[in-house]
Design a protein around this nucleic acid. Structure first.
Lengths: 348, 348
DNA sequence: ATGAAAGCGCTAACAG
DNA sequence: CTGTTAGCGCTTTCAT
């Protein structure tokens, strides 16, 4: 069955009806008699006819595609979000045009590319900070925008409370009795302006501030397990090293775990480690972490966008997704320290 | 600057020229006088005009989008390939429509969706086995197809020699002196028909067959580090356990590494582990593995497809990408065994 | 070099 | 219910 050159006119002619009727059959318009519909359907089948999504989109002004902008496609957290978004978009009948954004130039190009070119009906922004002007450049072209994991002005945003997350992790460690705690996070990046690390760090500091006698050691490095491992080695090799390290992402926490192994420090006995995200491998490694709903954030963002595309109500401008402290086996009370309040503990 | 309602006609009118001329300017047609071009360009700028990719595609019959079909989007190897493909497609000016294929139903739906609907100019199939009929359903609609990591009939395919890969890993282990070697790979899947594991297993067996006194213990489980870890625990807990395990993917090797840790077996002293792929974390973990060019396979596949889309020559129907044994710290001679030929070794 | 006009394949409004 | 017709916004001959 070859469908080359088979268009709606050919179907109409073959079925002995008008193109309008064929169009109605395709789009499930109710105003078609059952028998006509049956005949048209049969001809469509016989000719192997497939409507051109392009022509349909042009004529109706409704493109069934959505642009998904993600930073650093290969990061586990990004992939999880993308996975969720793509699944929903597929279910809703939208093509997902994914753009991997690694530089401001790519970001700006993508933004410009989708404003007004009729390639996508809407834009889902994942983890990319954008200014009101940038969002505006899209929305003013008539495309709805929804942001996930970024608190962007001018569009609905699904976010988490990073400050709270930083506090949760730190309080868990403080609760176990740790008083010298390291923080390893992403180096502030002037390029794209990611802000998650700094907020988690603020939460970390806030928690320490409330706990007399506690101290933090902060290091920020470029993202990556290897980089984090190097930072941890340095931190743990210094004098008066921390008894616990909070890493701003699981990827970095994995680096810390690896550093500990290299230094022959056992986790959690000699060093407690807390991560952030709860990516798949965190469970396998027994990593204690602050879980955020990664896949679900992508799903929800896509759902939100689809709803707007379908002409639904705007929905909440800002939605905060829940965080959950997941305690596994990478954290424990420090070897020698004040026992955690509420538990008795003999000295060793 | 709002571009709503600004179409090529508006630009033409404002510039006092015909739409044809504007079109020529946009597409860089040489047949436009410099001054006319300048004026048109200026009006375009002033009006904030952006050509509709949709209309352009419909009129010219050339869509600037490519469908990328990937299985299990979240797997590291898939993501690496996707990353490479998306980068090339972006550079070549194509939108990447990514479809995550997890079931035969999704696969078939995607295949049908892109055949003839004018949504994509071509299809890049990543790691998905397809029949000649399935490939044909796309190509007969006029869309070129290129496969990556799948030896699909009827379209150019970029593959690796999985049998060789299995042999390389096994021979490395045999060379170190191992004689009882475990194999942990994906359970044969009737659903999608992936074949990599079985070929690697065949290579494994071939290598053992050639080595008198060697024996293999084969287990296949559903894909995943956790599943592989469980399989490894069982395998190592049995009587006469292997001194080395070859996992059919790094993800599974990581599971084995974890199992070893749980069982208090040190790697590589008590157990050698070899993986396959060389994903990012393999390096961090010091995993010995068979490296295949993941990102590059995606790149090359996209390049190949773009070339065909640009009307270039068909290129080779089948291209075998190189494999490389990457020896790190997860493999060593077994504790008690015949010393590897060629090296002398005192007993311990 | 440039304007005019005929589509690309479909949708939607309008008669009947 | 259904045929007809006018576009959607752009590309592309074909004259000029």
């Amino acid at each position: 069955v070859c469908a080359r050159g088979v268009n709606i006119a050919a179907v109409a002619a073959e079925a002995g009806v008008g193109v309008g009727t064929v169009s109605r059959v395709i789009n499930g318009s109710a105003k078609v008699s059952p028998e006509t519909r049956a005949r048209v359907l049969q001809v469509i089948e016989a000719l192997g006819y497939r409507p051109s999504a392009l022509a349909s989109a042009l004529a109706s002004g409704a493109v069934r595609a959505v642009a998904v902008l993600v930073p650093y496609l290969t990061r586990p957290s990004t992939v999880a979000r993308l996975d969720g978004a793509v699944a929903v978009l597929e279910a809703e009948g939208y093509d997902a045009i994914v753009c991997n954004i690694k530089t401001p130039a790519q970001r700006d190009r993508a933004l410009a590319a989708f404003a007004d070119t009729h390639r996508a009906a809407g834009v889902l922004v994942v983890s990319i900070p954008l200014s009101a002007e940038q969002i505006g450049s899209i929305t003013s072209a008539g495309l709805p925008v929804v942001s996930v994991d970024a608190d962007n002005p001018g569009c609905p945003s699904l976010v988490i409370d990073n400050h709270l997350g930083g506090r949760l992790a730190t309080e868990h460690l403080l609760g176990l009795g740790h008083r010298r705690i390291g923080f390893i996070g992403d180096a502030p990046d002037a390029q794209m302006g990611f802000r998650s690390t700094s907020r988690r760090l603020a939460g970390f500091r806030a928690a320490l501030r409330r706990t007399p006698g506690s101290a933090g050691i902060v290091v920020t490095v470029p993202h990556g397990a290897t980089e984090a491992a190097a930072a941890a080695v340095e931190m743990l090799g210094g004098r008066d090293p921390p008894t616990a390290i909070f890493a701003a992402s699981d990827t970095q926490a994995i680096g810390v775990l690896h550093a500990a192994e290299k230094l022959a420090l056992s986790v959690p006995e000699d060093l407690s480690v807390v991560g952030f995200d709860d990516i798949d491998t965190a469970g396998l490694l027994g990593l204690t972490t602050v879980r955020q709903p990664l896949e679900r954030s992508g799903e929800q963002g896509a759902v939100h966008l689809c709803r707007r595309l379908a002409g639904g109500p705007p929905g909440p401008a800002r939605q905060v997704l829940p965080l959950e402290m997941v305690v596994r086996s990478s954290t424990a009370p420090p070897r020698r320290s004040v026992p955690p309040p509420g538990r008795s503990r003999s000295s060793c």
